[in-house]
Write a protein that binds this DNA or RNA. Structure first.
Length: 549
RNA sequence: GCGCCCGUAGCUCAGUGGAUAGAGCAGCUGCCUUCUAAGCAGUCGGUCGCAGGUUCGAGUCCUGCCGGGCGCGCCA
């Protein structure tokens, strides 16, 4: 019996009481089932009586007694106690608990997947770094978090498209081209230009690919450096993300918005809706009508649209492509962008609470390891991969809440010790894989899971492990709904610990020439179920689940 | 000045209004001739920044204050 099954049972009990006239209350849509921290409080607990007491006009403990009476009749439920202010503490029968293993084995790699978000078509944009530099730590964080989020949303039934917005037009690009040109000519990079060794490398490559470029007039040379410099930067960025295991469904070029007239269309649409005015030769959007703290320029006095204007057109384009939710992960250094974007959505006559979501992630720093000089004084994606590897890099980025600024200790994440959380989790997986190999070497046949006597799983540590495994689908759903992949990582760390404690307490394979214990087969299935959950969870984070370490 | 985020054990951080606030690391004490000790057990450690409020119940929600991070451009 899973917590979800139990929630249904609890609601059925409430319905039964209502139908029998013992309770006058609307049956709620959901019941909260939680795992009590203390084993004395049963396998599961629900606060349903506390929630129903007020609408029912009864004391919480009275409601609890009534519901408990019905719940006790449910098969699989061994005991129901009313405790404290009115909690129901529920103990399951061993067989009902053990049956979870069968559920997990049957679901296999899709255990944890739900339909919680089915019907939602979500566009998830992240990273979107300008092709004027290498990806640094903050970009890496959004890459890891965004990719995990995409996997979580998909696992919860949403249709997800991941997208990287590629700014290949505008003043930053011009500055980048000017920097390349200056370097190629052996001149000083302009003060507002780009620095770092990578600028020199790119400039040299452009010159190598286009030998006559420096003999061309300045305007033409700048164009060459711009087009091919961006091309190279973008190739490097994509290659790096590839190595990191992050693959976008769509790489969207800002240029296409210009080329296809989408920006013009958007300005016209906003003008028609009366949210636009002219001042000082520029075109302004009256975002203050919709909660922004100042109005925003969308077309500059020289006639060029602002980046913000392109962003508006991009949002409209996503909506036109049929996405009912536009999610954009941004760093805290861009959070000022949120109110104006929301204001725009209102200006278009849509409700930003329904269609737009901008999770803001706090900044990342790193210490330890050796710092790279290649990009100036910042740590790049490649530096991180070199320092700690892909698995540890991704895990380090994804295990903390986006709301927390993090400081990555490179020495810790590079270490192959228990200090390193990713090894702790991966080790549990490898340990199980090793155990299952040994079982195979001993020619042990576990048969079919449906034939195993799973009611034999009645040790306390077995119960703890079963309960932890039962939590997984809810953890995945919550992580998806709250856009909080770190919850999966924390859960896996707990699950790994619960497994290690089980392993320490419960012998599985026979020693020496002992005969196999009757618990052996059910325990082997319990191990396999745990291995599946660890592998599924790590998979959602984009981290490998090794069979050997 | 205004806005967003953070403040929880010595350190790094979990904790979608529920019971006695947790984990890892660091410190101390134990456990390997048999399934991976990259593990486990025990122990030490807290006015959940401060003060009010809402609630049967607040680390969690509201208000104010203190401290830190990040923003507030016809840059992104």
């Amino acid at each position: 019996m899973t917590p979800a099954d139990l929630a249904v049972a609890v609601l059925d009990a409430v319905s039964g009481a209502v139908e029998a006239g013992q309770l006058q209350v609307d049956v709620p849509a959901e019941a909260v089932i939680e795992r009590p921290k203390s084993r004395d409080h049963g396998d599961y607990a629900t606060n349903i009586a506390l929630r129903l007491a007020k609408p029912a006009g009864r004391r919480p403990r009275d409601v609890a007694e009534v519901v408990a009476g019905y719940l006790r009749r449910r098969s699989g439920v061994a005991a129901v106690d009313v405790a404290g202010p009115g909690f129901l503490n529920i103990t399951l029968e061993n067989a009902a608990q053990g049956a979870l293993v069968e559920t997990i084995i049957a679901a296999g790699t899709s255990y944890g997947y739900t339909t919680a978000l089915s019907g939602q078509k979500i566009n998830l944009e992240f990273v979107s770094a300008n092709p004027t530099g290498l990806l640094h730590l903050a970009h890496v964080r959004w890459a890891a978090v965004g990719d995990a989020m995409a996997r979580l949303l998909a696992a919860s039934g949403a249709r997800v498209t991941t997208e990287y917005y590629f700014n290949d037009a505008g003043s930053q690009i011009d500055r980048f081209a000017a920097s390349l040109y200056a370097v190629a000519q052996g001149e000083q990079v302009p003060a507002d230009g780009y620095h770092g060794e990578y600028v020199i490398e790119v400039a040299q490559q452009v010159v190598a690919d286009h030998p006559g470029v420096l003999d061309q007039p300045r305007a033409i040379a700048l164009e060459v450096f711009q087009v091919h410099g961006i091309e190279q930067m973008f190739a490097q960025i994509r290659a790096g993300l590839d190595r990191f295991g992050v693959h976008f469904d769509v790489y969207f070029n800002e240029r296409d918005l210009h080329r296809l007239g989408r920006i013009e269309e958007t300005v016209v649409r906003l003008r028609t809706q009366g949210h636009v005015y002219e001042k000082d030769g520029a075109v302004w959007l009256r975002t203050t009508d919709f909660g922004d703290d100042k109005d925003r320029v969308i077309v500059r006095s020289d006639g060029r649209p602002t980046y913000f204007c392109a962003d508006l057109a991009y949002y409209v384009d996503k909506r036109d492509r049929g996405f009912d939710r536009v999610v954009i992960i941004l760093g805290a250094d861009h959070h000022g962008y949120v109110p104006r974007m929301r204001a725009l959505v209102r200006g278009l006559g849509e409700d930003p609470d329904q269609t737009l979501e901008i999770p803001i992630g706090q900044m990342v720093t790193a210490r330890g390891g050796k710092m790279s000089k290649r990009a100036g004084n910042v740590l790049t994606l490649d530096d991180l991969i070199e320092a700690v590897g892909v698995d540890a890099g991704r895990y380090a980025m994804v295990r903390s809440s986006m709301d927390s600024a993090i400081d990555i200790d490179l020495d810790l994440w590079a270490s192959r010790t228990s200090e390193n959380p990713v090894f702790y989790v991966q080790y549990a997986h490898a340990r199980i894989a090793s155990l299952l190999r040994n079982a195979a070497d001993l020619s042990i046949d576990s048969g079919d899971v449906t034939a195993a006597d799973l009611s034999r799983l009645r040790e306390e540590r077995e119960g703890d492990l079963l309960a932890a495994l039962g939590e997984f689908p809810r953890v995945v759903t919550a992580a998806a709904e709250l856009r909080a992949p770190h919850r999966v990582a924390r859960y896996l760390e707990e699950l790994a610990g619960t497994y290690h404690r089980f392993y320490d307490d419960c012998r599985i394979l026979p020693r020496g020439d002992e005969d196999p214990a009757p618990e052996m087969v059910p325990r082997l299935w319990l191990c396999e179920a745990t291995r599946l959950v660890l592998a599924n969870g790590l998979g959602l984070l984009g981290v490998s689940a090794p069979d050997r370490m």
